[in-house]
């Protein structure tokens, strides 16, 4: 296997004003091109983990970082956030709080301007990026006049324009309606599949993560407690329940049926496979 694009080597991080570490001796490898979902309760350290990757921790936010975070071969603590921005793009939960410009085009241009990209290239990159996130033709609109889903896709476009290798999305859909959520996740999946972009999503939507993610990492009180494929993770219904985390409804159904000895075999994690399996089950019982 090639070198991972992101490596956490026994990372412990404590925020400046607190005693309890937010992250406890985390060791993780994420390969280039992976789609990783990070699950956990509020305060489990998910956002902190993301901020470690783009260097906001420890460069911008103070605190005590032990261990080493390496991204694309660079020790994050040795590079300013603005340098890491060329490698890691991070999108946050409230899209409106990420808007600073008068027009959509200028919002996308901001990162390019800071990177010194020539005007001629920007003229090409901006429409391309907006096309990619489904906002073609919105160039002259005000970012504050867009819907939540459009704003979040604009926030994503604003980091995508810089062509990072890694896209981190921190609860990107928590302020969005169902259609907005779908738009954002479809786009991330497309970037992952078609461009080989490494995608890290911090999310509560287990159904969606069961569908898209290659790998699920579960955090609890700053520790990695589970790390595996969605199938491996979501079939542990009881273990996730103990962590007070939701599991996909399909897995829950399979578990309830298994308790009645109506189910054996693999636990489905997607609704479609559960429907299929239940149909088979009904057929077998001649219902």
């Amino acid at each position: 296997m090639s070198d991972p694009i992101i490596r956490f080597d026994d990372v412990t991080f404590t925020y400046a004003a607190t005693d309890e570490p937010a992250l406890h001796s985390i060791s993780l490898d994420i390969q280039a091109g992976e789609y990783v979902a990070i699950l956990g309760l509020n305060g489990a350290g998910k956002t902190t983990l993301g901020l470690c990757v783009n260097g906001v921790i420890p460069t911008m936010l103070g605190g005590n970082l032990e261990g080493k975070v390496t991204v694309a071969g660079l020790d994050v603590s040795e590079y300013p956030v603005r340098e890491m921005a060329k490698i890691v793009g991070m999108v946050f939960d409230n899209p409106e709080f990420q808007m600073s410009q008068m027009s959509v085009a200028e919002e996308v241009a901001l990162g390019l301007e800071n990177a010194g990209v020539p005007y001629e290239d920007m003229k090409r990159i901006i429409p391309e990026t907006l096309e990619l996130v489904g906002l073609a033709g919105f160039e002259e609109r005000s970012p504050l006049g867009l819907s939540g889903g459009q704003q979040q896709r604009l926030a994503i476009a604003a980091v995508l324009a810089m062509q990072p290798q890694v896209l981190i999305m921190d609860e990107p859909t928590s302020n969005l309606d169902p259609i907005g959520k779908q738009e954002v996740f479809d786009m991330a999946a497309k970037l992952n599949r078609e461009r080989g972009m490494t995608v890290i999503v911090i999310e509560h939507e287990v159904e969606v993560m069961a569908r898209y993610a290659d790998r699920v990492i579960v955090l609890d009180s700053g520790r990695v407690v589970m790390n595996g494929t969605p199938q491996e993770i979501f079939s542990q219904v009881d273990a996730l329940g103990e962590l007070k985390l939701r599991v996909p409804e399909a897995a829950r159904l399979a578990q309830l049926l298994a308790k009645q000895e109506l189910w054996s075999g693999p636990v489905p994690i997607r609704t479609e496979s559960a429907v299929e399996a239940v149909n088979e089950l009904l057929g077998a019982h001649n219902v």
Partner: peptide, 27 residues
Amino acid sequence: IERVQQLSISLESRGFGSNGFKTSYRQ
């Protein structure tokens, strides 16, 4: 304050603090 804090992290993540050569989209 919360908004500005979030915005500053978001801006920095897009290279705002870069002290190198900057270009301008608006001509």
